[in-house]
Every structure is written in structure tokens, then in C-alpha cells.
Amino acid sequence: MAKVPVQFTLNGAEKAEFIDSGTTLLHALRDKIGDTSPKGGCHQGTCGACTVIIDGELRLSCLTLAETCNGAAVTTTSGLSEGGVLHSLQRAFLDAFATQCGFCTPGMIMAAKVLLDHTPNPSREDVVEALSGNICRCTGYEPIIQAVLTAARSNSQNAV
């Protein structure tokens, strides 16, 4: 099969790969580039475990062809902590005991990050809406909602 080149930034670092045409971004990230933080829970766009951020927008990487990401800026959960310091969302998920098996967690954190980037002071309804594409089978969601609200509060306190 003909290989096609793709080039984008992943968490700020340049990446260039030759991939099979039709490869999803999820596969390219996990199997080619080696960032396994996006998870494949369904490969059909219904679980949210593969959620990444592309140019500031929320995307399901299992439904995104890698070749459409040329020139894009891709962000994943593995790129959130800087210099070993956890991002406020990561910290809040830890403190709220919002992860059990953790398989949904990277996708949840991505969905929450896009929300907070656009809506720094979200209501509970905003959080619910933002997480509504992400399935969690372990937590019952409430700790995750609380973690996102806590992260938003800590962000705005730090901004003051």
C-alpha cells in the first residue's frame, strides 16, 4: 500500500512519519509515534477514550485520518504536565480520586481541557455537557465532574 507522509506537532514537538493512507490518527499516535496516552475503547466514535486536541478543538482520534492532520498542532494528555509538574486538571483528578481503572482518564482530561480553555469558569451543566461524549464505567462520573470544577476554581485562583 502506498505510504503517505504526515507532519504535525505533537505536544509542541515536530513529528514526521510515513503512514498507510487511511490510518487513523489514533493508530498513528499509538503505533507509529509511540504516544499511547490516547486509548482505543471502541474505534467507532462512541466512547471518547481516544480524545485529543487538534488546533484547540476537541477531536476523536479514532475518527480522524492522520493524513488530514498535516501542519496541525496535536495535544494529548501525555503532553500536559510540564517539567514533571502536573497540569491543574491532572492534579484535580488525582485529588478527587476521579480515576479508577484510568482507561477513560486521558480522554476525560482532554475533553475537560478544551472546556476550560474556552470557558474558564464553567457551570456544572457546562462540565456535564463537555464530558457527555466520554464513557466511564467505573466512577459514576460524579468524581470526574467534581475534579473539573475544582481545576477551574484553582486555575482562576492562580490567575488572580
Binding site: 490516547p38 501525555s78 502536573l86 486538571l89 483528578f93 480520586f97 480515576t99 484510568g102 482518564t105
Partner: peptide, 21 residues
């Protein structure tokens, strides 16, 4: 006590079986 596995979960570093290539 905080869970020792949670930092891996929130950074996407926890290794599930399919994270091996």
C-alpha cells in the same frame, strides 16, 4: 492515602496490555 497508580492514569503513562508494540 492517594493511589499509587493514579499519577500514571492522569498522565496517560499507565501501561495497559495494548500499549505495547
Amino acid at each position: 492515602r492517594p493511589r499509587s497508580d493514579s499519577p500514571g492514569h492522569v498522565t496517560g503513562k499507565t501501561t495497559y496490555f495494548a500499549d505495547r508494540n
